[in-house]
Nucleic acid binder design. Structure first.
Lengths: 216, 216, 216, 216
DNA sequence: GATGAATGAGGTTTCATTCAT
DNA sequence: CATGAATGAAACCTCATTCAT
C-alpha cells in the first residue's frame, strides 16, 4: 500500500534547492545557515533532512544542478549553429545571467579545491563542456571557418577560461559597460580563431616566433 | 618605559597575516577559525586581538595585502617593458603562482560582493591595474605595435578578465597542460592586439561585420 | 466490516517488539531511535504508534517480555527437578544465551532505577523468581539435600545475584573460558548449599565464627 | 612567558568530571546532556570543551577514573590482610557504596560493548583486579587457608562476578536486607574457598561427581 | 490499516570575542 | 606583551511524535 509520490518528493526537493541557492548567493556556502535555508524554503529545520542528508549534500546537489544545467544550455545553444556564432551566442547568454549565478559557480570552484565530491562533479561538467566546444571547433576547422593550426582541446579549455574571466570582470567592476566589453571580447575570440588571411602572410606577432609550438 | 616598538609590531602583524593566509587557503574565510590562525601563528587567541580588532579586520588586511601586492608586482613587471611583452610576462608570472594563491583571490572577489570594505579595496586595486594596463596599451598604440582601433580602457578590463580566467582554468582542470595553454593564450592576446597586416586586407571574420562597434 | 483482528494485531506487536529488541541491544534504549526500530521492523514511523503509545511504552513492553520470559523459563526448568540440579540447569541455560541477551537485561536494571514503571515490572519478576527459588530450596531442605541452617529467602536472593554476576563476567572478560568458570561456579553453589558432612564437625571457616548470624 | 597552571587545570577537569558523574548517575550516559553537566559544574556550555574534546572523552575519562579508583581501593584493602579476610573486607566496603556508584559501573559495562575505548579501559582494570585477587588466593593456598585444588585465575574471575552480582541484587531489590545478605555471601565464599575438612572425607555433593574438572 | 510529510525542541559542538592575571 | 579561562550565541543535526491522506 505504497503512497510515496516521487513527483511531489522531487518537486519539494527542487524547491528547497532553489531556496538554498538564493541563500548561498547571499551568504556563501559556509555563511548560509540551515535555519536560513529552511526559512527561505518555508519548512522547519528538521524537515530539510528528509530531503538532504546534510548541508554537504545540498551543496553537492547544487553543484550537480548548476553545472549540469550550464552544460546543458551550452549544448542547446551549440546544437544548431556554426562554430563561432555558437560560441558568441553562449557568451551573450552568459552576460545576461552573470550578475546572479556567478558568485555561486565561483564558490563551487573554490569548494572543489576542498571537497572531493564537488571536485568530481565539476570535473565531469568541465569535461562535457570542453568536449562539446572542441567538437564545435573541429567542425569549424572542417568548414574552413577556424584556423586549422589551432589544437581544439587546448583552445576549448582556453576559451572556457575566457568565458569564466568574463564573470570575474563583472565582480571586479560592477559598473563596467558589459555591452562594450562583450563586443570587444567577440573581436578577440574571432581574431583568435579565424584562419590567416588568404594567401597573405600575416604578421606573426610575438607568439608566432615559435609558431609550431604556439598553434600546435 | 617604551610602549611599543612599531617595527616589531608591524613585523608580528605581518607574521599573523601570513599564518592567517595559510589558514584561509586551506579552509576559506568562514572556515578558518581564529583558534586555528592563532595556532598556526604560534600565539594565543587573546593576543591576536592586540594586532587585529576582529576577524573581519584580518580579512580586510588580507585583501589589502594580496591585492596591493598583485597590483604592485604587475607594476614592476610592466615598468621596463613594451606593451605586449609586459602583458605576456605578467601572464607567465601568474602561471607559476597560480596553484597556491588563486583560491584566496577568488574568495576575496566573492567576499567583495558581500562585504563593502573588501569591495572598496578591490575596486581600488582593480582600477590601478586597469589604468596601468591601459597606459601600456596606449604606449603600444603610439609605437604602432597595437591596433589603434582598440579602445584601451575596455581592452584593459577584458585582458584582466582573461588573466583571471587563467586562474579558473587551473581550478577546473588541475591536470591541464599549462605550458601548452599559456602558449595558446599568448597567441590569442597577440592576435587580438596586433594591428591588421600592413596594406593587406584582413578577412574581417564574423565580428568584423560590425567593425565600428567591435573596435569602438 | 471487522475492525481488528486481535491475533494479527498481537502478532505484529510482537514482531515490532523483536525488531526493537535488536535495536536496543545494538544501541541501548536512548540510542535506538524510533526511525531505526521502524526500519528494522519494516514499517513506517507513523504506523508504529498504532501499536505502541510511545517509546516508553515499547521499553515497558520489552521489560515485561524479557523479564517475564526469563521467570517463565526458570519456572520451566525448575518444574521437574530437584533443588540443586534445577539451579545448575538454569545456570547452564543462562550461559548459552549470555552473549546476546545480557546487555538488555542490564539496561533494564539500570532503567528501573530511573523509571518507576520498569521498576515495578522488574520487582514483580524478581519476586516470582525468588519465591520459586526459595520454594526449591525449602524442598531441598525437606529432603535433606540442602543445609537446613540456610534461610531460603535470603539465599534465593543471593543466588540470583550470583547468576546475574555471571552475566557481568561475560561482559568484563569476553574471552573468559565460560565452561571452566561454570564448573567452578557449580562447585561454589554446591558447597554453599549442601549440608555439613554427616556427624563430622565441619571446619567452620571464618564466617562461621558467628554461625548463628551467618546461617540465620 | 607561559602561565598555564597545570594544577589548576587538572583541578577544574576533576570538578567537571565529578559534576558529570552526578549527572550520569541520574540520567545515564546518553540521558545526561552537556548542558546539564555544565549547569551542574557551574560553567558555560562552550567552556567544557576546553577540558574535554567530546562527550565521549568525558565518558572515557570517567571510566578511567572509576575503574582505576576501584582497582586501587581493592589494592589498598588487600595489601595488609590475609586472603579471605581481604576479600570479605572488599565485600563490606562495596556494600557501603553500592547505592550510588553501581549504576554507573554497570553502565560502563554496557557501554564497553559498544565503545571500544571504554572496553579497553575496562579490560585493563578487570585484569588488574583479577591478578590481584588471584595473587591473594595463591597466598591463601600457600598458607593452607584456601583449598589448593582451586585454580586461582578462574576463581578470581568468578569471585569478581559474585561481587558484581551483589550490585545487581541492590538494584533488583532495593529493600533487601543487605546486612543479612552480606553475611550469607560471606558464608558462601568461605565455604567455597576453605580446604576440605582435615582427614575427614567431605560429602562431595553434585559437582564433586567430576572433581578433577570441577576444581582444577 | 498504513504511509511519509512535517514539526520544533533539544542534542552536541564550534567559535569570535572578552578579561583577569 | 602575553596567556588561556570563560562566555553564550548559533551552528548542524536528531528525534519522538502528529497528522493528512
Amino acid at each position: 500500500m505504497r503512497r510515496l509520490d516521487p513527483v511531489r518528493h522531487e518537486g519539494k526537493r527542487r524547491e528547497i534547492l532553489e531556496a538554498a541557492g538564493r541563500c548561498f548567493v547571499r551568504h556563501g556556502f559556509k555563511g548560509a545557515s540551515i535555519a536560513a535555508i529552511c526559512t527561505e524554503a518555508g519548512i522547519s529545520p528538521g524537515h530539510l533532512y528528509h530531503y538532504f542528508a546534510s548541508k554537504e549534500a545540498i551543496i553537492g546537489a547544487m553543484a550537480d544542478l548548476r553545472l549540469t544545467e550550464m552544460a546543458q544550455r551550452f549544448h542547446d545553444v551549440a546544437a544548431d549553429k556554426e562554430a563561432i556564432p555558437a560560441l558568441l551566442a553562449e557568451l551573450r547568454r552568459k552576460k545576461s545571467r552573470i550578475r546572479q549565478a556567478t558568485p555561486m559557480v565561483l564558490e563551487l570552484l573554490i569548494e572543489s579545491g576542498r571537497n572531493p565530491a564537488i571536485a568530481k562533479i565539476m570535473r565531469e561538467s568541465s569535461r562535457r563542456m570542453r568536449d562539446l566546444l572542441a567538437e564545435l571547433l573541429r567542425k569549424g576547422q572542417a568548414s574552413r571557418q577556424i584556423d586549422p593550426a589551432i589544437e581544439p582541446e587546448t583552445a576549448a579549455t582556453i576559451l572556457m577560461g575566457v568565458l569564466d574571466g568574463l564573470k570575474i570582470v563583472a565582480l571586479r567592476e560592477p559598473k563596467f559597460d558589459t555591452e562594450k566589453g562583450l563586443v570587444m571580447l567577440e573581436t578577440m575570440i574571432t581574431r583568435f580563431l579565424m584562419p590567416p588571411a588568404n594567401g597573405a602572410q600575416r604578421d606573426p606577432g610575438i607568439a608566432d616566433k615559435r609558431p609550431d609550438r604556439a598553434l600546435q
